[in-house]
Design a protein around this nucleic acid. Structure first.
Lengths: 248, 248
DNA sequence: ACAAAAGTGTTTTTTATACACCCATGC
DNA sequence: GCATGGGTGTATAAAAAACACTTTTGT
């Protein structure tokens, strides 16, 4: 009895001042244009208030019955057609006032952003053209000031990308089924910068790990000796899962 | 004109099915009882539905005008008095149906949990006794099945704790101002397990890094040679910030 | 033949790991 | 003096980094 009444009173006191949230997901979608050695991020020009005409991360609000990851995936799929990608949750930004729509008159409705980080294959990523949405790949180094706190989110995502690349096999989610060791190296170079490792050391380290299969097929790209095509062996990689593994 | 009407229509379509969220924070609060070599996590026994009488992670719902981190901190401060702690965001769990209060009749109100991970100093952490809340330190190895998806959150937090300890100086947030190298070693042992590193190697590796200051003071604990007290030099640590640093 | 790209090997340096041993104190 | 915990050093193995060299192709 006593306990029950206390709980209800407590509930009442708390509920009085609870915030109501709209939850959005914002995607930091990276891709690597290995042809031109460019690390790209997908941006969308806002056509509505707030921050009209500012560039922003593509995102969406979460719908009824939809999981956060589903919302992130839907938002991505609405903007680009892509088969190969890596997607993971990044961070949740929810400081009061991060969205100007949180007006004082709106009785405490808050806008919370669960950000997701994605890496997609550039060569196959096809932007879905719509007159209403203005999408563009931006070089990460050349991104302008973004709407909301999206600059901060992007920076956070960029750090995560570099870490992920060093410690997990996300590169293989975005490379073709068969790739040359140079393809792989170029990807690492573009994301991590030129001087992360010597090619020959990179090469021998990866081959020694034993989860890259030589397919026997060779491919010639212009002048020079033809390169061997490798494939990523998921089974051989299993023992490395959850272990601190360094790719660089 | 055309563009405006399209935007409004779009907004309408979206809004129809948007989810409304209550946002909670759940804290995975760890502490290390070095006396008994135990890694502990703070749990709360639920006195209300749902999951009445189950153990759960302590948490709270986010209030108006309150940031996520503030809510996490408030929830922690309501349960334990502590001066030294490390606190960071862990992950956001928001799958539909994760909270039984999301009844079909509630018109899509969702319960989202932003989890936080904390490490506090066990020796000074004083549980705030209240008849209405049942708090206890549990050994991580002996935690029972928890309410909601809290077992999953705990597991996630435990992984993060181990990683953080290996790569960042969070141990010094929770050790006393002056500590012996053995205090530090015991902390690492308790969290990471006995066989993570030889004491003498641990010792020389850390001292070589140069951010541990010998205070000159010695302390004797029972038998054996007195140990030197060290302090963590934040300034000397600066160059290592943001660099991949291995403590183990 | 020679430039260009792929691939191999070797040397040096640094870091990790495993121990053996010395030092200072309480009892 | 000897058990106990604190602290130092050394020998070996493994990994990282630097770089020289060979191999195979297109032109």
């Amino acid at each position: 009895m006593k306990c029950n009444s206390k709980t209800e009173k407590q509930l009442y006191t708390e509920k009085k001042s609870l915030a109501d949230f709209k939850v959005g997901v914002d995607n930091v979608i990276f891709s690597v244009d290995t042809q031109h050695n460019r690390l790209l991020v997908l941006l969308r020009k806002r056509k509505e208030e707030p921050y009209e005409n500012s560039w922003s991360l593509p995102g969406t609000l979460v719908r009824q019955g939809e999981s956060l990851q589903d919302a992130a995936y839907r938002s991505l799929a609405e903007k680009i057609r892509v088969n190969n990608l890596y997607l993971e949750q990044l961070y949740t930004f929810g400081a009061p006032g991060r969205d100007p729509r949180e007006s004082p008159e709106s009785f405490g409705v808050r806008y919370l952003s669960v950000s997701y980080f994605a890496l997609v294959r550039y060569e196959e990523a096809e932007l879905i053209a719509k007159p209403s949405v203005n999408l563009a790949w931006y070089q990460v180094k050349e991104v302008p000031q973004l709407a909301f706190d999206h600059s901060q989110i992007l920076e956070y995502g960029y750090r995560r990308l570099k870490n992920k690349l060093e410690y997990s096999p996300i590169a293989f989610d975005v490379l073709p089924e068969k790739f040359t060791l140079n393809d792989l190296y170029q990807l690492y170079c573009t994301v991590l910068g030129e001087n992360f490792s010597d090619y020959s050391n990179f090469r021998s380290r990866l081959l020694k790990l034993g989860f890259l299969l030589d397919t026997g097929v060779k491919v010639s790209r212009g002048a020079g000796r033809p390169a061997a095509l490798y494939s990523f062996d998921k089974v051989a990689f299993m023992p490395f899962k959850d272990k601190p593994l360094v790719f660089i």
